Simulated scan of single mutants.
Amino acid sequence: MTGRPATTTLWRPTGPEELALVRALDWRAWPPRLPEQPIFYPVLNEDYAIRIAREWNVPHSGVGFVTRFEVRSGFLSRYPVRRAGGRTILELWVPAEELPEFNAHIVGTVQVVHTFR
C-alpha cells in the first residue's frame, strides 16, 4: 500500500493578477514568470507571507492574498532555504526555467488562506 508522499507546506503572497492566472490553471500550478522575473519565491512561513501581502500587495494593487500549497519534500531538497532578512524570513528561490517541473511536484491544489484589502 502506498501512502501520500511526504510534502512541505509553502506559502505565496500574491496579487489579483497572478491569482487569476493560478485560477485559470485549475489551482494546480503557478504561471510562467515574466521576463523581468527570473526567480519564483515561495516562502516557508505564513507570517512572512502575510506581511508581504499586507505591506506590498495591498498598496500595489488594493488587495493581497496569501496562498498555501504542498510540494513533494524530496523534490524541494534541491533548493536551499534562503534567509531574506530576519531568522524567520525564509524563502526558496526557484529559477523561472524550473517552474514547470516545480509545478509538477505540487500535491493537491493552491488554496487562498487570507485576503487583505
Score class of each variant (00 low, 15 high):
112 V>Q: 12
97 E>D: 07
27 W>E: 15
81 V>K: 11
12 R>E: 14
6 A>E: 09
12 R>T: 13
105 H>Y: 07
60 H>Y: 03
79 Y>F: 13
86 G>S: 14
71 V>C: 13
106 I>D: 15
65 F>A: 15
103 N>V: 10
19 L>T: 01
66 V>D: 00
1 M>G: 14
29 A>I: 08
30 W>Q: 10
8 T>N: 05
102 F>N: 15
23 R>P: 15
108 G>L: 08
102 F>W: 12
65 F>G: 15
116 F>M: 12
115 T>G: 13
37 Q>R: 00
27 W>S: 13
106 I>H: 06
78 R>F: 00
18 E>T: 09
45 N>A: 08
27 W>Q: 14
54 R>L: 05
49 A>K: 12
44 L>N: 00
35 P>Q: 03
15 G>R: 12
10 L>K: 08
34 L>E: 05
17 E>D: 09
75 F>D: 12
15 G>I: 04
102 F>M: 14
29 A>E: 06
84 A>L: 09
52 I>P: 00
92 L>F: 06
94 V>K: 11
110 V>M: 02
89 I>H: 13
74 G>Y: 04
71 V>W: 00
49 A>W: 05
114 H>W: 04
16 P>F: 01
105 H>F: 11
73 S>W: 01
29 A>V: 10
99 L>I: 06
89 I>N: 14
7 T>D: 08
109 T>W: 01
56 W>G: 04
82 R>T: 12
106 I>T: 04
38 P>S: 02
26 D>Y: 05
28 R>D: 06
12 R>C: 13
4 R>N: 05
18 E>I: 04
107 V>L: 05
93 W>L: 06
47 D>L: 13
95 P>Q: 05
77 S>M: 05
62 G>W: 05
88 T>L: 05
4 R>Q: 06
23 R>T: 14
117 R>A: 04
55 E>V: 08
57 N>H: 10
3 G>A: 06
79 Y>D: 09
84 A>N: 10
45 N>Y: 03
78 R>I: 01
89 I>Y: 06
71 V>G: 07
69 F>E: 01
17 E>S: 13
17 E>R: 11
99 L>V: 08
77 S>G: 07
12 R>V: 00
97 E>A: 04
56 W>I: 11
